[in-house]
């Protein structure tokens, strides 16, 4: 940090100014001149928050994807199917038991088990054969999509938001000042704030596990050099299975979250697979911090685009991806392979 400041004083100053300006935009009531250019502050804040919370959802899906890729170098194109399957199972559990929270452990276990089966039956047999793995997982995703269509049909499902999370909450962010001097605070859906908080906690926990524990050390060693790790007599296959199960479980949980604030229907699997791919390409393959940063940027790009330039909002995400590929092909946080 201090090294960067000393090496690049001007860049540091520019970043500080941008951050300060952004903080001012978020925290201070806007003078009329700013409102004239940017529209009401409520809209700006909502776009930012929607972007961040959408990023939280993307992070949940993409972190499992990137972890699996980083460690095993296999691109699991059935990851989106695990997301959708988790969502459907979550709907069934929440619908039958009436408990939204109970859906999380159940879905995590079920999708993690599917992940273990996938790793044992499919990936272990074709280690290092990327093309074969890719084709097999595409095939699996098609089979799973049709099975889900057969079971749950083509209609849309939303998972019921539990009472303690439904409705809006007031955030301590001022959107306007009434003529009598009262502050008007931003109202925002409670469930999205909680999901954001949960994603942040999960992200920090994952970072701690990977950087501070023995199992994390094994995973990092595996990411750097699989063969050396195996040659040292460590149970590399067990680590693979654990990571795969965890990644799959995360995708399943993300399905519940997605089903709660968006909806579940056929086709969502490929949409989230694509989103995960964009996130890890932007963030850098195999890096949790990269997935978090990528998810945040992609979510913000989508929502700010939708607010201020709805006509072109569809292309922004892909422009972003193209820009990253052109100037930093390994991704923002990725290391050169």
């Amino acid at each position: 940090m201090t090294g960067f400041v000393q090496r690049r004083p001007i860049a540091t100053l520019a970043i500080a100014v941008v951050v300060a300006f952004f903080a001012w935009l978020v925290l201070a009531p806007w003078p009329p001149a700013v409102t004239e250019v940017m529209g009401p502050k409520r809209v700006f804040l909502s776009a930012i928050l929607s972007g961040v919370t959408l990023g939280a959802l993307y992070f949940l899906v993409a972190s499992g994807f990137t972890l699996i890729f980083g460690l095993m170098r296999n691109v699991n194109l059935a990851h989106g199917s695990l997301y959708l399957l988790g969502g459907y199972i979550g709907f069934e559990v929440a619908d039958r038991t009436g408990s939204w929270l109970l859906a999380f452990p159940i879905v995590f276990v079920i999708t993690a088990l599917i992940g273990i089966v996938l790793q044992y039956v499919v990936f272990r047999r074709m280690e290092g054969e990327e093309l074969r793995q890719t084709l097999v997982t595409i095939g699996l995703s098609i089979v799973l999509a049709d099975l889900m269509l057969a079971i749950w049909g083509g209609r849309s499902y939303q998972i019921l938001t539990p009472d303690f999370l439904s409705g809006p909450m007031e955030l301590p962010l001022v959107t306007a000042v009434r003529p009598n001097g009262d502050f008007v605070y931003l109202r925002y859906p409670r469930v999205r704030i909680w999901i954001l908080a949960a994603a942040i906690v999960l992200g920090i926990a994952m970072w701690l596990v990977i950087n501070r524990t023995r199992i994390g050390m094994l995973i990092r060693a595996g990411v750097d050099d699989r063969e050396m790790l195996a040659a040292s007599g460590l149970p590399v296959q067990a680590v693979f299975v654990a990571v795969f199960a965890f990644g799959a479980g995360l995708a399943g949980i993300a399905g519940i979250v997605g089903g709660t604030f968006q909806s579940l229907s056929p086709g969502e699997d490929t949409r989230f697979l694509l989103a995960s791919l964009v996130v890890v390409i932007v963030g850098g393959m195999g890096s949790i911090t990269g997935a978090a940063l990528g998810a945040l940027i992609v979510g913000l790009t989508e929502q700010i685009g939708l607010t201020y330039a709805p006509t072109y909002s569809v292309v922004f995400t892909f422009l972003l991806m193209a820009a990253v590929l052109a100037f930093r092909p390994q991704g923002l946080m990725g290391r050169r392979l």
């Binding site: 928050l49 929607s50 972007g51 999205r192 968006q262 969502e268 939708l306 607010t307």
Partner: peptide, 17 residues
């Protein structure tokens, strides 16, 4: 008038406006 792209899944920022 708000026009949203087909296949838009997240309307958070439209709802706010």
């Amino acid at each position: 008038r708000f026009w949203v792209p087909l296949g838009q899944a997240d309307f958070g920022s439209v709802v706010a406006q």
